[in-house]
């Protein structure tokens, strides 16, 4: 009886999926008009971390690339924005975009050596690149060593502006992952995930598929990083290239559900709310998140959403065609 009810509800949700999504987006669009500044900034953070987590999920959950160096693209994006707007008075928008392009080119350059590394070597290799950049930037006079920049161009913008920018990158990242997974590339990725050797012998271009994900991840992560630094205003190498970014991505994806599009959506809400709730105790919130993540890897390796989907047999944003 209960099970039938659930099935009926699920079918209803499925039929009205796009209607629900449009409605949700409409509500999100109106938030700056009626919500408090605090609420707006919470949503802003949720959207930004959503973009970061979606990209990490695309790499780790679908392309089998567990990178611990994604912060390199945040640093590159943030620093490009800071240098172009502060030193050259370049327009904001093009600075953000150029940052994305620089990250993309940097990803392309390092992909040749870094893709030779497998599994744990890849993981630590990416981390090493980010750490190397961190030290390089803090010793580089052109970017004012470890002193950092105040990105004064950010003062042109209100929280509302930034909210919409974050919304575009946050929801855009969900759309990008959804489109990728429904494309030929997505089919290839899933084949690789199930059996890399078999996929390769069936003609899936494994290297190319992984590379495309890595590049898309670099670009979107960089843009999200720039937007974050517009919001934060101050950039400094140890934070910009710090592992904390990737820690956030990893925790969000594991808690929500690795290898699902909806997972990061749930994970990011838990992450941001917990961080805000324990704002004055930064260490404790990371401690709690770390414990939750470790426990979940043991008891529910697919996270909250992945486990729920298994129980209900229903995915809201299924990458499969029906």
């Amino acid at each position: 009886m209960g099970k039938e009810c659930v099935t009926i509800v699920i079918n209803d949700i499925r039929n009205y999926k796009w209607f629900i999504i449009t409605g949700l987006i409409a509500v999100l669009l109106t938030i700056p008009f009626w919500a408090s500044n605090y609420t707006v900034s919470i949503f802003l953070l949720i959207f930004m971390y959503l973009a970061l987590a979606q990209m990490w999920n695309l790499l780790a959950g679908y392309a089998g690339l567990v990178s611990l160096g994604q912060q390199m693209f945040i640093g590159l994006g943030g620093y490009t924005l800071a240098v172009l707007t502060e030193l050259y008075r370049a327009p904001l928008w093009s600075s953000i975009l150029i940052g994305g392009v620089i990250s993309l080119i940097f990803a392309l350059i390092i992909s040749a050596p870094i893709f030779r590394m497998r599994e744990a070597y890849f993981t630590i290799g990416t981390w090493l690149v980010a750490e190397a950049l961190k030290i390089f930037f803090s010793n580089w006079g052109y970017v004012r060593y470890g002193q950092g920049f105040f990105i004064t161009a950010a003062y042109q913008l209100t929280t509302t502006h930034m909210y919409y920018m974050a919304m575009v990158i946050g929801l855009g990242s969900v759309a990008v992952v959804y489109i990728i997974l429904r494309s030929r590339l997505g089919l290839g990725l899933m084949a690789i995930r199930d059996n890399e050797t078999a996929a390769e012998s069936m003609g899936v271009e494994v290297f190319k598929a992984k590379l495309i994900c890595f590049l898309i991840g670099a670009f979107v992560t960089s843009i999200a990083g720039s937007i974050f630094y517009l919001y934060q205003v101050f950039i400094q190498p140890y934070a910009a290239f710090g592992i904390d970014w990737t820690v956030a991505m990893v925790f969000i994806v594991i808690i929500g559900g690795i290898g699902t599009i909806e997972g990061p959506l749930a994970g990011v809400v838990i992450y941001v709310l917990l961080r805000q709730y324990l704002y004055n105790y930064a260490g404790i919130s990371m401690l709690v998140l770390g414990l939750i993540a470790i426990v979940l890897i043991h008891v529910a390796p697919k996270g909250f959403i992945g486990t729920l989907q298994e129980k209900l047999g229903f995915e809201f944003l299924s990458p499969r065609r029906r």
């Binding site: 780790a60 567990v66 611990l68 599994e119 744990a120 993981t123 820690v247 990893v250 925790f251 594991i254 690795i258 260490g283 404790i284 990371m286 401690l287 998140l289 770390g290 414990l291 993540a293 470790i294 890897i297 043991h298 390796p301």
Partner: peptide, 20 residues
């Protein structure tokens, strides 16, 4: 359970120790 879970467990442990 594959390569990722042990890697991520030790990563989580690392963050817990640092913050503790």
């Amino acid at each position: 359970k594959g390569n990722e879970p042990p890697l991520l467990v030790t990563f989580g442990l690392s963050i817990i120790i640092q913050n503790a």
